[in-house]
Amino acid sequence: MTNFFKNTLDPMVALTLIAVLDIFLFLLVGAWTVGGGETMITGLVAQFFIGDELSRIPFWNLVFVPDAGYWKIYISLGMLFGAIVSAVLSKEFYLRFPRRLGEWVMITIGGLLMGFGIRLAFVCNVSTFFGLTPQMNLGGYLAISGILAGAWVGSWIYKKVLEG
């Protein structure tokens, strides 16, 4: 067990375990997803700051009504918790900051595009690869074609920035 927190785990082992657990989750509540929980967190935080004003924005009335009992939120919080425990036990927890201004800019734009993209698509990368596509939902193939093209364009920009 001590070795578990010392050596890097083979991602093949990790993903096999995650896939098996995801099948159980699928039977109990639904397949692994992150974007929906993040949207609900956004709604709850916005509600905390602006209160009932939020319900004047139709999206938060019709698509996502803020609800702290939405199970998908707790997948995200669990991942954060699990990662903190794991990082502390492996002595890998320390504050790291992006060094260059360019990195901050790329992360900011990247974050905005991810959040906007998730809402436009109704799904995130996790639902695409670990939910929709394995259910052979047409949306999974549509999403994969989008994310492959996006990752290609992103990689091209990333390369230009690295070289420039």
Partner: peptide, 10 residues
């Protein structure tokens, strides 16, 4: 959506 997401994640 996933096209934008793909650029964003990289």
């Amino acid at each position: 959506g996933l096209f934008l997401f793909g650029i964003g994640m990289v």
